[in-house]
Amino acid sequence: MKAKVYVTLKPSVLDPQGKAIHHSVELLGFEKIADIRQGKYFEIALDATLSDAEARETAEKIAKDVLANPVIEDYRVEISN
């Protein structure tokens, strides 16, 4: 069982790295790119004996306590078997 955790900066927080990437993408000639925001992605391998609900609960807690800083970031958890 796997938990995928996506950590993204809150919309109100400036993302200078995303801006630099956006700039490079435009220099390459890509058009109609409105914005690029950089985030983080984690894969957590969980014991197969956990139920989906238990796996989600564990991954949400890890995301909240460790992977994301709630002052500046949001997170989203996906569970897959």
Binding site: L9, V13, L14, Q17, A20, V71, I72
Partner: peptide, 17 residues
């Protein structure tokens, strides 16, 4: 200290990178 919650707010990447 910010990460630990002893001070409020956070420190992110410098604006000019």
């Amino acid at each position: 200290l910010c990460e630990a919650g002893l001070l409020p707010g956070a420190l992110i990447r410098n604006k000019n990178l």
